[in-house]
């Protein structure tokens, strides 16, 4: 099994395609950072417009912490594509290349093969997120400095103390990793049905885009569906950045407004992962390899 995992990782990281994702993430992040460094003032002014007409924000809100949040918000919509690029190719790519039949005629079970492949795509996904964290969080912290984090939510604003932010990012990245592994699992699942990688990649993205739209639309008939869509739960990393207040409306440092929601979403995602991977194994074990 360990040999299989090593080999799968070796294959992933010997392919040029793998590095597209890392380069894409780096390019996107550095461009945003460059833009904010050069012209952050006007962006800050836009954000710092009076809130609710009665309050104003004093200080520089464009610090490393807020920038990371903005980038996570933007990138976590795009990173699934980069995850799908590899995960949705894991089986279909081998089928397309013609190596799948050789792999399957080797002395290990299909279940082992799939688990090793899924583990390898998970490692890739996690490395991509670590890379994202290095660039979006640590590089931004280095370029823009740290400070309090000011966040606008749809019906209130949150101000987090400087020393109350970092651990939230740790949690958010762990959660985001879970969300991205769910995407990987979906791509992986779809990849067992195809003999080319484009199909499953496009299908994975389509599912995510479609579900995200359903998640975003505030139409009552769809609202009932929302709790069942994994995309709704994928953004629960944001919950780490909402803080509880006490009766005196003081934010309680170190608290999370709705930890149960994070736990629930995490459970939903874990169930999806188990479902997708389990489904892949079940179906793939019965599948005739004709490629």
């Amino acid at each position: 099994m360990w040999t299989l995992i090593q080999i799968e990782l070796y294959k992933i990281f010997r392919r040029p395609r793998t590095y597209i994702a890392f380069i894409a993430v780096a390019a996107l992040i550095t461009i945003i950072q460059f833009g904010l460094k050069v012209d952050g003032k006007s962006y800050a002014d836009f954000l710092m417009k009076d809130i609710g007409g009665t309050m104003e924000i004093d200080g520089n809100i464009i610090n490393g912490y807020l920038i990371c949040y903005i980038m996570l918000q933007l990138l976590l919509v795009h990173v699934p594509l980069l995850v799908a690029l590899i995960a949705a190719d894991m089986i279909s790519g081998e089928a397309n290349m013609g190596t799948l039949r050789l792999l399957i005629s080797k002395p290990f079970s299909r279940t082992e093969l799939l688990l090793a492949k899924f583990f390898a795509s998970t490692v890739y996904t996690l490395l991509l997120l670590i890379w994202l964290a290095i660039l979006a969080l640590f590089l931004s912290m280095w370029i823009f400095g740290t400070g309090d984090m000011f966040l606008m939510k749809s019906s209130y604003v949150v101000l987090l103390s400087e020393n109350d932010v970092f651990w939230r990012y740790a949690g958010a990245f762990v959660f985001a990793a879970l969300a991205m592994v769910t995407v990987a699992a979906l791509g992986f699942f779809l990849s067992i049905f195809a003999e080319n990688s484009i199909g499953p990649i496009v299908a994975t993205m389509s599912v995510i885009v479609f579900f995200t739209i359903l998640s975003t639309l505030n139409i009552p008939i769809f609202n009932a569906l929302k709790p069942y869509l994994f995309t709704t739960h994928m953004i629960s990393w944001k919950e780490f950045f909402d803080i509880q207040v006490n009766d005196a409306n003081e934010a309680i440092v170190g608290s999370i407004q709705n930890p149960q929601k994070i736990v629930n979403s995490a459970l939903v995602l874990v169930l999806h992962i188990i479902g997708f991977v389990g489904g892949s194994i079940w179906i793939f074990n019965k599948k005739d390899v004709l490629s």
Partner: peptide, 25 residues
């Protein structure tokens, strides 16, 4: 005195109805 504050969810990219967590506030 304060006025109400509201941003569209499309801007804040919040998908779910998070009216409930506000109860304390």
């Amino acid at each position: 005195n304060t006025k109400d504050y509201k941003l569209p969810k499309g801007i804040t990219l919040e998908f779910d109805d998070n009216e409930k967590p506000l109860s304390e506030a």
